[in-house]
Design a binder for these strands. Structure first.
Lengths: 286, 286
DNA sequence: GATGATTACGGACGCCGTAAGCATA
DNA sequence: TATGCTTACGGCGTCCGTAATCATC
């Protein structure tokens, strides 16, 4: 069997659920079929992909897994793209946005409806990867995502073939509580490494993980002092204002903060859209 | 049939050869099998993918084609990646480079062999897309590619999952013949649009097509006055020096030239490598 | 010994080739 | 009319389920 997409899907499910039988249940197969899928993949690739009991990917399996996800996503994207080419343009505009881009998305949505009042519109808030995948699959018509990146680096999004239509870059700022010593101390702002021992708030659903920040900065990761699981910017800002910790956010939303001296980082916003809705793009840059 | 990779491959081949029977010959199928492949894809996607006689992709087919190429490439990449995970590191380093990156690649190769003298090494010159695909497929161990891009834009390469390890950006310059009026006329250099009527040399294998340049500059394309099919930089420079036309090249290789006033463009060099050969990366930036 | 992955085997379906049909240049 | 895509049909291979086997906690 030559890397049948069904086998790849089974493989990905097995890894996710860490169980052949659970994967079989979820996919509507028998345990036996799942075992055969994995077996044929391993025979085809000439490598052991999974450790059994407990079920965990081997080194080779880990490599395959990354590709498998991308391939399956792209397969969905292809189907959605063809469907769009056949169907007439829908009378709806579903936009996905990350929390920090919600305002921009709302402005874009409003502008689009000003042009076409009959347009049914919807807004969904989610993480960058989830939005990129949903746009690729045709579940969303456009998406606005943001995150921290090194200058000139695009955001690390799953590869889907969806074009990045337009983007902006803003300076990020370290958000601090009102009386934080760093506010007065450093005029230029601290370097990221000086903040290694700071009390970071990890807010994965707002700013992304600290590990992702470390990756963009090409630095070692930080230990989070506090975790914020909410999806709204206000909640995170409230924690910062209450002196519970610090966070790296676009300067425009930060009340009390200092710029980052080094390394140079940008807060980047990207617009994903299959058929660039011009009104949306215009509203975003404005 | 749920978008079987074999069908996608058949579809891509049919489009490329513009013929069912030619595709059948190339793939070792019968004409009938090819017809059935296309038929099942069309049935599955609920869309006509090809016009017959003459054979050409429909709108939907064009959409599918882009995804199909990416999916097939990624399938190859997955196989190569797993193979690499299983096999011990090979005693060879095959590097691909674009003509304008050949010197950097040679330096990197030399540095790598200084570290490991036993390393069998090879250098292959090709276009950016071909190199990216070869690296993904494991035919090359690393690649250095370059091209013109808007600042902050990565090069438009096929998506393979191969990480871009490191890159440099240089200012491009308009290469002119020794006595060219523009050399004296403009101090700041001309804008790209002022060069619309200039005698451009199109050298797709050295600098990329003029259409790609127009895309990066978000401008209308230019009509090439002369076409240079060679792969070496020297030949192109000789044509320019002989007053046969102008070209946009990295400033460092240009003898007589002026900078580009607008739009801002960069000549970008990217290093592609699955397992970042550090020596190579270091040699490139130096 | 129970849970869970593997192997053995058989039925059904799908894929591809042969061959006949049909449309277009 | 010739070239070339499509449809009909049949054999063979593949896929998946049932059931028995084997391994691990």
């Amino acid at each position: 069997m030559r890397m049948d997409p069904r086998c790849l899907r089974t493989f990905a499910t097995v890894v996710r659920l860490e169980s052949f039988s659970a994967a079989a249940r979820e996919l509507g197969y028998t345990q036996s079929a799942v075992s055969q899928h994995i077996g044929s993949l391993e025979a085809d690739l000439g490598a052991t992909l999974l450790h059994r009991r407990p079920v965990a990917p081997t080194e080779a399996g880990t490599r395959l897994l990354e590709h498998a996800g991308a391939i399956l996503l792209r397969l969905d994207a292809a189907r959605a793209d063809v469907a769009r080419a056949v169907a007439e343009p829908p009378g709806r505009l579903l936009v996905g946005a990350t929390p920090l881009s919600a305002a921009a998305a709302a402005r874009g949505l409003a502008a689009a409806r000003r042009e076409r009042a009959a347009l049914a519109a919807g807004l969904r808030i989610d993480g960058p990867a989830a939005i990129a995948m949903a746009v690729a699959r045709g579940e969303l018509d456009a998406g606005i995502v943001d995150g921290i990146a090194a200058p000139n680096d695009p955001l690390a999004l799953p590869e889907t073939g969806v074009p990045v239509v337009r983007f902006t870059e803003e300076p990020p700022a370290v958000a601090l509580g009102p009386g934080h010593p760093l506010l007065a101390a450093a005029r230029e702002g601290p370097a990221l490494e000086d903040l290694a021992d700071a009390r970071w708030i990890e807010a994965p659903r707002v700013t992304g993980t600290l590990d992702a920040l470390a990756m963009a900065a090409r630095a070692a990761g930080f230990r989070p002092a506090l975790r914020y699981d909410g999806q709204d910017v206000g909640g995170l800002l409230a924690l910062v204002e209450a002196g519970q910790g610090i966070a790296l956010l676009p300067a425009r939303v930060v009340r009390h903060g200092v710029p980052l001296a080094a390394p140079p980082l940008v807060h980047r916003t990207e617009l994903l859209a299959v058929d660039a809705p011009d009104a949306l793009a215009e509203a975003l840059v404005s």
